[in-house]
């Protein structure tokens, strides 16, 4: 079971600032462990973000992104009270959905 995300969504004027922290190993498949064995790739490969019921991000991610990644963006058209729903799926089929409300 994947660990929860931490989502922060805040209106600054008419722009919503959204920051998402994800807990994930993001293994590249290039690294070797102490015993010299390759650690298998394990990474988030798709992310969707819905704000106020509208899909605003539908993206693919890969191994170039670090462990415990942070995603931040600003968007217009959101308002306080809108629900932010973030969903990710990794290459092993593990997934996680978390929610927050724009403040």
């Amino acid at each position: 079971m994947a660990d929860p995300m931490k989502i922060r969504a805040q209106m600054k004027g008419d722009v919503a600032e959204i920051r998402i922290l994800m807990s994930h190993a993001m293994e590249t498949g290039q690294r070797k462990d102490a015993a010299g064995n390759t650690v298998p790739a394990h990474f988030i490969q798709s992310i969707t973000i819905d704000v106020g019921g509208k899909r605003v991000v539908d993206g693919q991610t890969g191994t170039a992104i670090s462990r415990n990644p942070v995603f931040g963006f600003k968007m217009k058209g959101a308002k306080a009270g809108d629900k932010v729903v973030v969903n990710w799926v990794d290459n092993k089929g593990d997934k996680r959905t978390d929610e927050a409300t724009v403040a």
Binding site: T61, S66, F71, K74
Partner: peptide, 15 residues
């Protein structure tokens, strides 16, 4: 479907 390019303004990169 058009994939979004809004992604990361701040990625934690290990360098």
């Amino acid at each position: 479907m058009k994939r979004s390019i809004v992604m990361a303004t701040a990625l934690t990169v290990t360098w």
